[in-house]
Structures are given as structure tokens and as C-alpha cells.
Design a protein around this nucleic acid. Structure first.
Lengths: 240, 240
DNA sequence: CGATTTTTGGTCACTCTGACTCTAAGCCCG
DNA sequence: CGGGCTTAGAGTCAGAGTGACCAAAAATCG
């Protein structure tokens, strides 16, 4: 098959990029992984990690590569999932650039090591990244907003919350993920009941962990289920 | 701002298209709107309606335009929503083409009028379109499969089922939408209770419609709510 | 040791759901 | 015209799940 372009249709000067929204929970707040841009446009400003898709690379592979190159994070242990595509004309001053945004949730990852390509990757509280004065590049503020809403929703119907927790973890660790991302307080007892009765969400390791205060908590590992059925709905609660 | 392309990054020869999955319920079966291709590649084969995004057009606008041009359907009355992007190298023999797929559900629309651009648009039962011998173009089989699963899921958490019904409609009309798309039988009485008690799903018109058989059913119109809370979950039922 | 903190177990009332029964109101057909 | 058929719609009942509580267990801190 001839891989050259067949001149049979209106073509346009267009590029395709991938952008990644990587979340983690740190210090009781949702953080997003951002890089400082090293070139124009938006030189020196913060942006989501991402970059051009290469000619022989599928979108998922491009996302993994850019994540690794720009931040040093190995995305293979993350569940990267497509968020959606953004393609308004004018969203990128370099020309027509369509981007495919990916979303993943990770445990509290180590700070990027200086001296590598990833030297300029940092964890930023989402609240700060979205504040008006912060000045995210391109339309990354919009993408980040959409990603937050998507993450909130996924917590309801899937077990992704466990992705935020390094194993082994406690039920309280898991609960704090929900509380931070939803911005609501959950009843510890009811939450525990729900998690433990959902087949495949967590399984006990038999160990316990002594905390700074209070009774030591039992430790669990992820149970392998991806769907959460019935879902864990955030009800009308509005706290904070 | 110079809208010419800044030569600062690896570019690739790439095009962006939109493809549309438009569903309707007809004759107790889920149908999808397909067109017969008038050019290479896949000349004469069936495909999802869609085409190239123009330089100054955002993705949503491109989807609306292609839908109208190729099928004569006015998408403004449909709730078009992005499904996801597909960009594997090799998915299009013309070169590197990334497509953004859209999904919408419509009431039983009139057959396309011959003599227009839309002459070759037809409603095809999804089951047939997905059968091995049917030969959808490109990776449209994959896209269609994903769209079916997405539609099934959206019925659970949103009120999109009403998009399938031309107003005014009966509760049974609405139930048939669920039954056809999920492929399960639902209890008429329980379904009615759920729909009527969900604020904003439907509102009564006060009229009744005499059916071919049985007691005349009360007529309703859509109530404006988009979310369905609590959701209407397809439980473990597996029928058909 | 007592105060404090966090985990963990339990109760209770309420809602929602699925399965089911029964009545209402039309049409068809003999 | 009246019985049979069909679909709409009302209601009942038991069980699952949830939110709001209460209370005990097991650690640390002073």
C-alpha cells in the first residue's frame, strides 16, 4: 500500500498532539503534573505535558512517550484513558493543532529528578492551576477543568480511586481520595462498608499499619475489578 | 499573530476528519445512519457519514456540516456529543488521518430524499452493519461498536433515551428504546414508576393516544433534565 | 492513667428496586 | 352485544442498599 498521501480531498495544514492530565492526591489536595514550556509559544509558562504525535505512532503510544520524555513518569503502570479531543481553530498560535487529551490517576509519585528532560515537571494543586492568575498555556485550563469533572465521575462508577493509592493501602487512604476529589466529607463507617462489600475492589493483606494517631488500620491491595457496581454515588452532599 | 505555521517542531502529514454515529430505533431494532462511499478508497462500500475538518471550523461545526451535507439530517436538533478520537497509523490508506467520532441519538428520521447529496444515506440495522460480511469502511466497525456500548451506558445515567422519541410520546415508547438498545426486557410497571418519579424526565401533556391494541396511553413530552439521578441501571439481566 | 484520635463494628429507619398481582380501557371477532 | 385479547397503569411486598447515628477497640500523647 502506498503510504503517500492521495491527493483526492481537501487537505489542511494541521498537526495532532496529545496532552496528558495526570492527577495525584498529595497533602490533602488534588495535584496535576505540569511542565514549564521551554519554547515558544508560551515560553516559560506552565502547560500540561504533551507533544506532537509521530508519523508511525498511535495515539496511546504517543501519550506514553510524551509522558515519559517530559516528566520521567512511566505511564505503563498508569491506566491512561482518552478524555476527548480539542480542536478549535485558534487554540494554538502555531496554526491548526488538534489535541487528544488523556487522563490518568497515579499514586503520589516522586518529584521529578533535576538534570533530566523532566527537570521542569512539577506537581501543582489543581485549585491553583485553575486560578485566573496562573495562566496555563493554550486551552489547557479548559482541558484541566474537563478532566477534573471526568475524574469525579469516574470515581462513582469505577475503581480508579485505587490507582491513587500505593499498595498496600488502608480504607482510609482510599476514602481520602474520594474526599479530596469530590470535595465532600464521607462517613468513614459507611464508606468502609461499601468498599468491603464490593467484590473485587480491595482484598486484605492481613497486615496492619500503625498510624501517627489512632488505632492501626488494616492494609489492603487492589482487587482487580474495574467497574463499581452498584456505583458509589456522590449524593446531594455539598460540603466545604 | 502570524497564523502561518511556526517551523519549531516535528510536523507530520496528517489530516483530521469527523465521523458521525447517528442512531435511531426503528422496527424494534437499533439502526445506524450509513452512506455509500462515492470515491476511493472503499468506493461503493458503506461508511459512517463524515469528512475532513475545514481550516477555520471547529470540530463540532464540522460534524454538523458533514451530517447535513451527506445525509440531509439537521443535527442542530440532535444532541451531538464527542465519542472519542481514533488515530492508529494505517487506519486510512490515504495516509495519516485522525478522526474524531461523534455520537447522537435521534427519533425515527425520514428516509433521505433521492436526488440530493444525501441520496446514498440509508438506515441500517446495527446488527447487520456489524456482521462480519458487511464490510464497513476504514475502522468504522470498531467505532460503531464503541458507540453502541457508549449509548447503552448513557441510557443508564442520562435522559438521552427521550432523544429517540418524537414528541409527544408514551412511556411505552420510551421503554421500547431501552429494551431495543439494551437487548433486555424491562418490567413495564417498574419502568413507568421510575420514569415518572424522576423529576424532569417527562411531563404529561394531558392527552392520550389510541394505539393499535390495548388501552390508550397517556402522552408526555421531554422534561428537560439531562442527568438521570439516581441512574437507571441495567442489572444483571441478560435476555435475548 | 486519662484524653484524644482513628479504625472498625453495629443498629435503625428510609428509599429504591424487582417480582408480582390486579384492574382499566380500548379493539376484534363471532 | 359480549367475551377474549391486548396494552396501560395502580398497587403490594420483600429484600438490598444507604445515610445517620452510636459505641467499642486500639493505638499515641501528655
Amino acid at each position: 500500500m502506498n503510504s503517500a498521501v492521495v491527493p483526492d480531498a481537501p487537505r489542511m495544514a494541521v498537526s495532532v498532539t496529545v496532552d496528558l492530565v495526570i492527577f495525584t492526591v498529595r497533602d490533602e489536595a488534588l495535584h496535576v503534573l505540569l511542565v514549564r514550556r521551554g519554547k515558544e509559544p508560551f515560553l516559560g509558562r506552565s502547560a500540561l505535558p504533551g507533544g506532537y504525535v509521530r508519523p508511525d505512532e498511535n495515539l496511546d503510544a504517543a501519550a506514553l512517550r510524551e509522558l515519559s520524555e517530559e516528566t520521567g513518569v512511566d505511564g505503563r503502570e498508569l491506566r491512561l484513558a482518552q478524555l476527548r479531543a480539542y480542536g478549535d481553530p485558534g487554540r494554538d498560535p502555531r496554526g491548526r493543532v488538534i489535541t487528544v487529551a488523556y487522563l490518568a490517576l497515579g499514586p503520589d509519585l516522586p518529584d521529578p529528578v533535576a538534570g533530566t528532560d523532566a527537570a521542569d515537571a512539577v506537581w501543582v494543586p489543581v485549585e491553583r492551576a485553575l486560578s485566573p492568575g496562573f495562566g496555563l498555556s493554550f486551552d489547557h485550563g479548559r482541558i484541566l477543568s474537563d478532566a477534573v469533572e471526568e475524574a469525579r465521575s469516574r470515581l462513582e462508577y469505577t475503581t480508579v480511586a485505587a490507582d491513587f493509592c500505593r499498595e498496600p493501602f488502608t480504607v482510609s487512604d482510599l476514602r481520602r481520595v474520594y474526599e479530596v476529589i469530590w470535595g465532600t466529607a464521607l462517613d468513614p463507617s459507611n464508606f468502609r462498608r461499601k468498599v468491603l462489600r464490593t467484590a473485587g475492589f480491595v482484598e486484605p493483606t492481613g497486615e496492619r499499619r500503625a498510624a501517627e494517631a489512632g488505632r492501626p488500620a488494616a492494609l489492603y491491595r487492589f482487587g482487580g475489578a474495574t467497574e463499581l457496581y452498584p456505583p458509589l454515588l456522590r449524593s446531594g452532599d455539598v460540603v466545604r
